[in-house]
Deep mutational scan, measured.
Amino acid sequence: KITVTFNGEEKARRYYKKMQKHNLKVEIRVENNQWVVHVE
């Protein structure tokens, strides 16, 4: 499981979509004013 933190929504969403293309289970959320993407 990987957790990647971004300081911008745009970058986070781009990464999220990229990971989805690989058929990975991805989850995006905001934690402590940071955009966090969890990849299983």
Rank of each mutant, 00 (worst) to 15 (best):
Y16Q: 05
A12T: 02
V37M: 02
W35K: 00
R13F: 09
T5G: 04
A12N: 02
V26E: 00
V36K: 04
W35G: 00
I2E: 04
R29E: 07
E27N: 06
K21A: 13
V37E: 00
A12L: 03
M19W: 05
E31G: 04
Q20G: 04
K1Q: 09
V30G: 04
Y15A: 02
V26N: 00
I28Y: 02
N7D: 15
R29S: 11
K25F: 07
F6D: 01
K21E: 13
Q34R: 11
R14M: 10
M19I: 04
E9N: 03
N33Q: 08
A12I: 04
V36Q: 04
Q34P: 00
N7S: 13
V37W: 01
L24C: 13
V30F: 15
N23A: 10
K1L: 10
T5V: 14
R14C: 13
V4L: 10
I2L: 12
R14A: 14
E9D: 02
K25D: 05
E40V: 10
N23G: 15
E9H: 06
E31H: 08
V39R: 02
K17Q: 13
I2R: 11
V26T: 04
G8S: 15
I2K: 08
Q20L: 15
F6W: 02
H38A: 10
G8F: 11
Q34F: 11
F6L: 02
W35I: 03
K1A: 11
M19Q: 03
H22E: 08
V39A: 03
R14H: 07
W35H: 01
E9Q: 06
V30P: 05
V39I: 12
Y15M: 03
V36L: 06
N32Q: 06
K11Q: 15
K11M: 15
K25P: 04
I28R: 00
E27L: 07
V4R: 11
E31W: 06
R14L: 12
V30E: 12
E40G: 10
K18Q: 12
H22I: 10
V37T: 00
Y15Q: 01
A12Y: 07
K17N: 12
H38N: 09
R14I: 11
V30M: 14
V26G: 02
R13T: 06
V30Q: 14
W35C: 02
K25T: 08
R14S: 09
E9R: 08
K11E: 15
N7R: 10
E9S: 04
E40N: 10
H38G: 04
E40T: 12
V4S: 03
A12W: 04
K21V: 07
H38R: 11
R29Y: 14
K11Y: 13
G8A: 15
T5M: 11
K25W: 08
K18A: 14
V30I: 13
K1D: 07
E10V: 10
